[in-house]
Amino acid sequence: MAMNSLLSVENLTVKYGDRVGCRNVGFDLFPGEVLGVVGESGSGKSTLLNAVSGQLPPHSGRVSYKTRLNDRCDIYGMTEPERRFLMRTDWAFVHQNPRDGLRMSVSAGANIGERLMGVGWRHYGEIREAGLNWLEKVEIDDDRVDDLPSTFSGGMLQRLQIARNLVSKPRLVFMDEPTGGLDVSVQARLLDLLRGLVSDLGLSVMIVTHDLAVARLLSHRLMVMQGGQVVESGLTDQVLDDPQHPYSQLLVSSILQV
């Protein structure tokens, strides 16, 4: 475990009965660093993401996080209220399907404002102002602030989910295939937006994707997973341009050329 890491994962193993979701995974995530996790479906990357983000208790191993107060705390050792508080303030989770991360029955503004109200904001005007600011940041017209998400396009929904998550100024963001299911042109816009937000806000990000192009453009560092294990990790361009493990080589050589 590195001293100045934001998140440290040690020997993490998740089992589903006798089946292994992920085995003995360890890594450090540093402030401002974007870590990509790639691998095909079933490789254990989503399991790892859920276990690391406090949503799936591991069979063994440890996930620790350095809080704003510089304490290093064990994610599964803290009380549930503490963990839930952390997850809705300092952390964020962007789902592949924005409908999983949004409240579809309330307006865009209320979706963005929820985290603020959750930490005690009680001034309607200020909450709405924050909502409008964030709509602008994610390139949604401000006259949509009172509209229901169900009237939004797929790309807008994903951007709204990102705004809803980032409004509380989290330090650590987990993303599960954030560009999956979007048209290619919409994907490009989202990638650009995400990259800008990540560098402007100095976010640390763990992003799971099966799209190596997305991984290349967003992440600094890459882990390749196969059968629940990390088979290779390193600098993103190193892993993609000079892969060492047979599976990484197969993955890289399987990309369709445009």
Partner: peptide, 22 residues
Amino acid sequence: RKMHALEEYGLMHVKLYEDISR
């Protein structure tokens, strides 16, 4: 139930927010 147990009542204000914006 969990929200009551942990006193996580931000959602209640989401409802009132929605009222005002509508």
